[in-house]
Amino acid sequence: MTQSTLEALSGEIVEETTVLSIHEVSRICTVETSRIVELIDEGILAATLSEAGEWLLRGEALRRARIALRLQRDLEINLAGVALVLELLTEIEQLRRERLLGI
């Protein structure tokens, strides 16, 4: 990663997009929409229904979606297991932070 004379490309941070449609999330995660619906139904991803009946997600849901999909794919964990792993990971992160910073 060095400086280069090529023209610099600018992009946006996807996670900072306030609202992503389920189609955008599935496109970015390169899975079928049904896989994202599964994660919403299991309570792994928070989503709201638009007036047109389409699932909308917050940009920050993307990271959680990706981790959930990788766990499913690489470890062949079912949805309930993925939900549990994610909850435990969050708890471990909090504990680590508490131990380090006492907050």
């Binding site: 490309l9 600018s10 941070i13 996807v14």
Partner: peptide, 18 residues
């Protein structure tokens, strides 16, 4: 090879869309 303008304040796990 791509030269990318890194958005200031990007966090680990975030995605740049080009």
């Amino acid at each position: 090879t791509l030269n990318v303008q890194i958005p200031k304040g990007i966090l680990a796990g975030q995605t740049i869309r080009l």
